[in-house]
């Protein structure tokens, strides 16, 4: 697995898109910090970008890599290696290279700005951690979709749809149901609805550390008690972990029956 990981990582790290992605974050980081001079505000803006962009890029890269390396994968499949190792190697190769682009791209401007001397270091690290989780989650989801769809166009379409659903539509439905179910106590419902969307969960996780904890308190004790504590932080990270593990598990299950 690590051999495959090594080579697909090398391959991706040298691809043009990795550079573009890296450069994008680099420029973004510098612009936010040096035009604003406000680390907190920069982190909030970054949050907005990371929770939307990381899933999108992860999805697109995941699907693209799968379909583009189909023939090469066939060559690998004829080698004496287990199938699951090939795909796990490729999966980790993409996820790690994307995460690295993000961490370096954002890390360099923040370190240059003097992050280590700032109190925002914890928030920033959490932001990167959540970004990394989103990469791993959405590449895994993209692989799932690609494995289930032989047709490239269809697979691509489904992947974008999934992103659109989780990034936008889900929240729309969520908000509408909150407004319509206004008369009922909605604390638990909101809490659970958040758990079922990794983007929402990531967003809440960061917001808790930034500005939302008191606002959540406003909506009732359930939220505050859950998200306001270290236990809540650990549980949320645990659920993000599940969001990685379950799709990865399904990839492996799917592989056992898959014809190439």
């Amino acid at each position: 697995m690590f051999k495959i990981l090594k080579y697909s990582f090398f391959d991706l790290m040298r691809s043009r898109w990795s550079y573009v992605y890296f450069a994008f974050y680099l420029v973004l980081g510098f612009v936010l910090l040096f035009l604003n001079n406000d680390v907190d505000k920069a982190i909030i803006t970054l949050l907005n970008i990371i929770i939307v962009l990381t899933p999108l890029i992860g999805t697109i890269f995941g699907v693209m890599y799968y379909y583009n390396s189909k023939e090469f994968t066939e060559l690998l499949l004829a080698q004496p290696i287990k199938r699951s190792k090939i795909f796990m190697g490729q999966y980790l190769g993409i996820s790690i290279s994307l995460t690295l682009s993000m961490i370096l791209g954002l890390g360099i401007p923040f370190v240059a700005y003097g992050l280590f001397r700032s109190a925002a270091i914890f928030n920033f690290s959490l932001l990167l951690l959540v970004g990394a989780f989103l990469n791993f989650i959405f590449v895994a989801l993209a692989f799932n979709i690609a494995l289930s769809n032989e047709n490239k166009i269809k697979g691509f379409g489904f992947a974008i749809l999934m992103w659109l659903f989780l990034a936008v539509i889900y929240d729309g439905v969520f908000l509408i149901s909150l407004v319509f179910l206004n008369e009922y106590p909605l604390d638990k419902f909101s809490l659970i609805a958040t758990m079922f969307n990794p983007i929402d969960l990531s967003r809440i996780l960061i917001l808790l550390k930034l500005d939302i904890s008191a606002l959540l308190g406003y909506t009732g004790a359930v939220f505050k008690n859950f998200f306001g504590t270290n236990m809540g932080l650990l549980t949320s990270l645990g659920i993000l972990m599940l969001w990685v593990i379950i799709p990865v598990w399904r990839i492996n299950r799917k592989l056992r029956k898959k014809d190439f």
């Binding site: 391959d11 040298r14 691809s15 023939e71």
Partner: peptide
């Protein structure tokens, strides 16, 4: 599969690896 060699129909390799690296990779795998 260590006892067989396979030549796939379409030769499409990772675009950003060099020929030497690809050969090295397959050598690593077997």
């Amino acid at each position: 599969r260590d006892h067989l060699n396979y030549l796939p129909q379409i030769a499409n390799f990772p675009a950003n690896l060099s020929v030497t690296e690809l050969i090295q990779m397959v050598k690593d795998l077997r």
